[in-house]
Design a protein around this nucleic acid. Structure first.
Length: 767
DNA sequence: TAAGCTGAAATTTTT
DNA sequence: TTTCAGCTTA
C-alpha cells in the first residue's frame, strides 16, 4: 500500500490539509484495511490491534475521498457506547459533526429507524412503542392465562427466551410451526408466538427482536423499498461481526444485495476468538463463513497488538490455541515481555478476595491508580465477596454492568407514565402504573378492566371511561379511576404545549409518584429519586415527548460521569472492549470457569466459548494479570472443593509465575470474634463510597446484617467440628483416600494417595 | 388490599 | 445462602 494519497484535492480543499493526516500512524495492515474500499472486506482484528481505529479511519477516508456522503454510509455496532465512541472519534479525525452520520448506530436503533418510515407495511403505525422486557413478560403472562397454561410449569420468562431465540434466528411464527413445534407448553409454542405478535400489532408495539425481524420481513415483501436502501447505502460497515446473530446476518445480507456479492461494499470487522455471546444467539459461523458469503472477499488480519506485554499475549495465545475451527491469528507485539502472569491458589473465596485486596494495595503503594485495576469475574455472584473486603478495607470500587439505568423500577414506572401520556391506548404501561403509587386499585379491579377491554377489543383506558359511567365498579374505584383519567387527559393535552422536561416533572409530582418515593423510608429511596431527577434532566435535550420516547427505549443509558478513583468490578462479558493496566482474574476453577453449566448444555462448543472468555479476560490486561483460584467455594450455600481450571494448564509455563500461598493458609483469623468488630467499620466507609450504587454488597450493608463468614462457617459445620486426628486415614469424594497431616480448625491438610497434598474442609472427608 | 411467608431456583445479558 | 415470585393471612 502506497503512502501517498491518490485523492489529494478534495481533501485539501475540504479539510485544509496537505495530505490525509488520518492515514499517518497506521501500520501497513491497518492502512490496507482503511483504503481497500471496493468490494467485500473482512478485517480480522485481534484484541488490542486497533480495530476501532481502523473502522473510524475507514469512514473518514470514504468521506474525505468524496466516495460517499455521510448519509450514504451504514455503520452498525452492537452497543450504543460503541456507536457513540465511533462518532466521537470520527469527529476528532476529520472534524465533521456527529450529526452528519445518520446511519451510524446499533442494529436495533437503525432497524427501528427504518421500520418507523415504513411501519404501515408491517401493520404498525410510525409511532409504535418499543417494548421492554418487563412489558414483554407481562404480555406473555396474559397470553398464558388466556390459554389456560399453567404458569408454574411453563414460566413466562422461559417462553420469552425461547421466543427470543426464534427471533434471533430470524424465524417468524409461520416458520416456527414446522421446525420447532412442541418446544413449549405441549406444542402450543407456535400458537403463543403468533398470538403474541398479534397482540403486539394491536398494541402498536414491537419488541427488540422485531426491530430486525420486521425489517427483514419489510425488505422481503417490498423489494422496491429494499432497493431504495440499496441505492442509499454505498458503504456498509459492521463492528464486532462475530457477535451477530442469524437475524442480523439476514438483515445485512438483504441490505448488501444491491450489488453482486463479490462487489458488495461491505466491510465487517471482528475477532472470532472474542465471540462470547453464543448463548444469546450469536453465530461465530457468520464470521467464519464471510468469505463464502461474499466470494472474492479480501481478508486482512490485524495481528499487531498495541496493548499488552509479550507475556500477556503469549498466555492469551496459548490458551486460545486450544480451540478448533478458528480463522487463526497470531498476536505479536514489539513491547517487552513484561512481568509474568501471576497464578495464585487460595484456601477459599474469602481469602481469594482478601489476597486480591492486598495485591491492589501493593499496586497502590507502587503508585498505581485504582482506575488502572479491574477484577473480571465469571459470574456476578463472585462480586459480593470482593465488595465486602473492599468495604472493610476502605478500597474504593465500582461495579460495572448489572442493572441498567432504564431497567430500574423507578425509571420504568416513570416511562410508563410518559408513554401513557403520549399514547393512552398503551395498556401495558397502564397496567404497570395504575396502582403505583397505591391508589386502592388492586388486582380485582385491574382484572375486571382488563377483561372488559379484551371483550370489546378496546384499549383499557377506553374501557375505564365506559366503566366509570356504570355501576359495575365500586364507588371508590370509580372516583379514583375518574380522577386518573382526567389527569391523563390533562397531561396528554399539555404534551402539545409544554416541553417534555416540564411536563414530566409535572406528571411525576401530580401523580404522586415523586411523593411515593419521598415517603418511602427504605435506604434506596433517595437514590431512586435521584435517578428520576436524572431522567427528567435528560429530557431537557428533547423538543417533544415523542422524540424523547423514541430515543429512550433504544439509547438511554446511565451517563457514566464517575470521576472517582476506583477499582472496577465486572463480569468477563462486560469487560470486552475495555483495557486496564492491571487485571485480576479470580475464580479459575473447574465448574465455575469453565462454567459447568456451559459444558453441560453446549458441550465442546460451550467449552470453547468459555475459553474465548478466558482469552478476552487475559487480553484486557496491558501490564499485569493476576489469576487466582479458591480451593473451596460456597455454591448455593454449600461448600464445595474445587479443582483448578483446565485453562490454567493451557497457560505457557514460561509466561507464568505460580505464587506460593502456603503461608496464607491459617494466617488469618477465621474463628475470632474480632472480624465482627471490624465489620462495623464498613458502615463508617459508606459515605466515602457515595457514587457506588446498588450492589449486592451494599444491599447487605443497608439491610444491617453484617453476617460473617465465621458464623456461617461454624453453623454449617458444627456437626463435624471435631472427630479427626492427625495420621487418621480418611476418604474424600474427589481425591480418594489420604492421611491427615495437620488439623487447623475445620481445615484438614491431607496427603492423598492419588493427588498428593491438599487442604480440605473436614465436612468433605469421611473417617 | 398489603404485608409476611414459603418454596424453588440459582451463568453470562450488547438491544 | 440468597433471591424472588406467588400465595396466605390480617
Amino acid at each position: 500500500m502506497s503512502d501517498s494519497p491518490n485523492n489529494p484535492n478534495p481533501i485539501t480543499s475540504q479539510f485544509g490539509q496537505k495530505s490525509p493526516n488520518y492515514l499517518k500512524g497506521l501500520n501497513p495492515e491497518q492502512r490496507e484495511a482503511v483504503t481497500s474500499i471496493d468490494g467485500p472486506l473482512l478485517v480480522l482484528a485481534g484484541a488490542g490491534t486497533g480495530k476501532t481505529r481502523v473502522l473510524t479511519t475507514r469512514i473518514a477516508h470514504i468521506l474525505a475521498s468524496h466516495l460517499a456522503e455521510s448519509s450514504q454510509i451504514l455503520s452498525v455496532t452492537f452497543t450504543n457506547k460503541a456507536a457513540l465512541e465511533m462518532k466521537q472519534r470520527i469527529g476528532k479525525l476529520i472534524g465533521i459533526s456527529v450529526e452528519g452520520m445518520p446511519w451510524m448506530g446499533t442494529f436495533h436503533s437503525i432497524g427501528a429507524k427504518i421500520l418507523r418510515r415504513h411501519a404501515e407495511l408491517v401493520g404498525l403505525k410510525p409511532n409504535f412503542t418499543i417494548l421492554d422486557t418487563d412489558d414483554q413478560i407481562r404480555l406473555i403472562k396474559q397470553l398464558l392465562t388466556a390459554e389456560h397454561i399453567d404458569e408454574k410449569r411453563w414460566p413466562a420468562r422461559q417462553f420469552a427466551s425461547i421466543m427470543d431465540g426464534w427471533k434471533n434466528r430470524g424465524l417468524l411464527p409461520s416458520d416456527v410451526k414446522s421446525s420447532h413445534a412442541g418446544m413449549f407448553a405441549n406444542g402450543l409454542g407456535d400458537k403463543l408466538y403468533a398470538d403474541y405478535q398479534q397482540r403486539l400489532t394491536s398494541l402498536n408495539a414491537a419488541d427488540f427482536g422485531d426491530l430486525l425481524l420486521l425489517c427483514i420481513r419489510l425488505f422481503r415483501e417490498n423489494p422496491d423499498i429494499l432497493a431504495q436502501y440499496h441505492s442509499r447505502f454505498k458503504y456498509m460497515l459492521v463492528d464486532e461481526y462475530q457477535d451477530s446473530n442469524v437475524a442480523q446476518y439476514l438483515w445485512l445480507r438483504l441490505l448488501a444485495q444491491g450489488k453482486p456479492a463479490h462487489l458488495a461494499n461491505i466491510c465487517v470487522v471482528g475477532d472470532d476468538d472474542q465471540s462470547i455471546y453464543g448463548w444469546r444467539g450469536a453465530e461465530v459461523d457468520n464470521i467464519l463463513r464471510f468469505e463464502k458469503d461474499f466470494p472474492g472477499a479480501k481478508t486482512i488480519k490485524l495481528e499487531r497488538n498495541y496493548r499488552s506485554t509479550g507475556n500477556i499475549l503469549a498466555a492469551a495465545s496459548s490458551v486460545i490455541s486450544n480451540n478448533e475451527g478458528r480463522l487463526g491469528k497470531t498476536l505479536h507485539t514489539d513491547d517487552e515481555k513484561g512481568e509474568k502472569l501471576q497464578v495464585t491458589s487460595l484456601w477459599d473465596s474469602e481469602e481469594e478476595a482478601r489476597h486480591t485486596a492486598e495485591q491492589i494495595e501493593q499496586l497502590q503503594r507502587n503508585g498505581q491508580d485504582l482506575n488502572s485495576m479491574a477484577i473480571l469475574v465469571r459470574t456476578s455472584a463472585q462480586m459480593r465477596e470482593f465488595e465486602e473486603v473492599f468495604i472493610k478495607l476502605g478500597i474504593n470500587y465500582r461495579v460495572i454492568g448489572g442493572a441498567k439505568f432504564y431497567e430500574r423500577r423507578e425509571i420504568r414506572d416513570a416511562l410508563a407514565y410518559l408513554r401513557l401520556t403520549h399514547q393512552q391506548s398503551f395498556d401495558l404501561a397502564l397496567e404497570r402504573i395504575i396502582n403505583v403509587p397505591k391508589r386502592g386499585l388492586g388486582t380485582t379491579t385491574v382484572k375486571f378492566i382488563h377483561e372488559t377491554a379484551r371483550a370489546q377489543n378496546i384499549p383499557m383506558m377506553q374501557a375505564i371511561r365506559m366503566l366509570i359511567e356504570t355501576e359495575e365498579l365500586g364507588a371508590k374505584q370509580r372516583n379514583t379511576l375518574s380522577f386518573l383519567i382526567s389527569q391523563f387527559d390533562d397531561w396528554s393535552a399539555r404534551a402539545t404545549t409544554t416541553s417534555p422536561f416540564e411536563l414530566a416533572g409535572a406528571i411525576f409530582d401530580e401523580s404522586g409518584y415523586t411523593a411515593m418515593w419521598k415517603d418511602e423510608k427504605t435506604a434506596d429511596a433517595p437514590g431512586r429519586l435521584e435517578n428520576l431527577k436524572e431522567l427528567v434532566n435528560f429530557m431537557q435535550d428533547f423538543e417533544t415527548l415523542a422524540e424523547f420516547l423514541e430515543h429512550i427505549s433504544l439509547v438511554l443509558d446511565r451517563a457514566n460521569n464517575d470521576n472517582s478513583n476506583a477499582v472496577s468490578i465486572m463480569t468477563l462479558h462486560a469487560a470486552k472492549g475495555l483495557e486496564f493496566n492491571n487485571i485480576f482474574l479470580p475464580g479459575w476453577e473447574e465448574g465455575l470457569f469453565p462454567s459447568q453449566r456451559s459444558l453441560d448444555e453446549s458441550g465442546n462448543k460451550g467449552l470453547e466459548e468459555e475459553r474465548r472468555l478466558a482469552y478476552v479476560g487475559i487480553t484486557r490486561a496491558k501490564k499485569k494479570a493476576f489469576i487466582s483460584l479458591a480451593q473451596n467455594r460456597r455454591i448455593h450455600g454449600f461448600w464445595k472443593t474445587a479443582l483448578p481450571s483446565r485453562f490454567l494448564d493451557e497457560l505457557p509455563p514460561a509466561a507464568v509465575e505460580v505464587t506460593d500461598t502456603g503461608s496464607s493458609f491459617g494466617a488469618h483469623n477465621y474463628g475470632g470474634s474480632n472480624s465482627n468488630k471490624n465489620s462495623a467499620s464498613r458502615y463508617d466507609k459508606k459515605d466515602a463510597l457515595d457514587d457506588v450504587y446498588e450492589t449486592p454488597g451494599w444491599k447487605r450493608m443497608r439491610a444491617n446484617s453484617p453476617k460473617t463468614i465465621d458464623g456461617e462457617f461454624t453453623k454449617n459445620h458444627e456437626h463435624t467440628s471435631t472427630g479427626f486426628r492427625i495420621t487418621q486415614q480418611v476418604t474424600h469424594l474427589k481425591f480418594g483416600i489420604g492421611t491427615i497431616t495437620s488439623i487447623e480448625g475445620k481445615k484438614l491438610t491431607i496427603n492423598f494417595d492419588r493427588v498428593g497434598r491438599k487442604k480440605v474442609l473436614d465436612s468433605f472427608v469421611k473417617g
